[in-house]
Design a protein around this nucleic acid. Structure first.
Lengths: 85, 85
DNA sequence: ATTGATTTGTTCGTATGTATT
DNA sequence: TAATACATACGAACAAATCAA
């Protein structure tokens, strides 16, 4: 997954949704660490500020929580919407 | 040798070139250790991140190699360009 | 075997300046 | 003007490995 600088959606949101997709796909379980800022810098070829904004955005969405000097982790499932049918 | 924060060249590159000059001057021989990160912090009055960037830059240039938990050392001379005259 | 100092590795937090749209 | 994004730099904390006493 890469990032498109010429898209309507800001790069930091693109990154946030890419990570979110991995979470939803079960590739990163609750309480597990998401990629560090510098990892995102390398993986997506963006500046660190942008990676930070992506994390801040994910935090804002309630998807993750950050522990200073430790990392950012996937949030506990809040209260699952019951699977349909 | 000190560092100029108002120069065009980034501080980390300035430090890298200062160390390189010492290597070229024979003050630090191949296989010998260059100053540690915390030494550079003290000597140049910069943050450790900046010292680390200087080392990373030198590594990138092929001037040095780093052994984790041991230090950073001057690279072996590749293939000397024959001394002129 | 233990302790303490040293050294690199890694992480998030913060600030400034610049450029582009 | 405001939002986005990049580069640089300092700060703080902790981990882990090495080495010497």
């Amino acid at each position: 997954m890469t990032v498109d600088h010429d898209a309507d959606v800001p790069v930091y949101q693109q990154i946030a949704h890419i990570i979110k997709a991995r979470i939803d796909a079960g590739q990163i379980a609750p309480r597990r660490r998401i990629p560090s800022e510098s990892t995102m810098v390398q993986e997506f070829g963006v500046a660190r500020v942008t990676a930070r904004r992506a994390v801040a955005y994910m935090r804002q969405q309630g998807w993750v929580y950050t522990v200073p000097q430790r990392g950012t982790f996937v949030s506990e499932p809040e209260d699952e919407e019951p699977a349909g049918s």
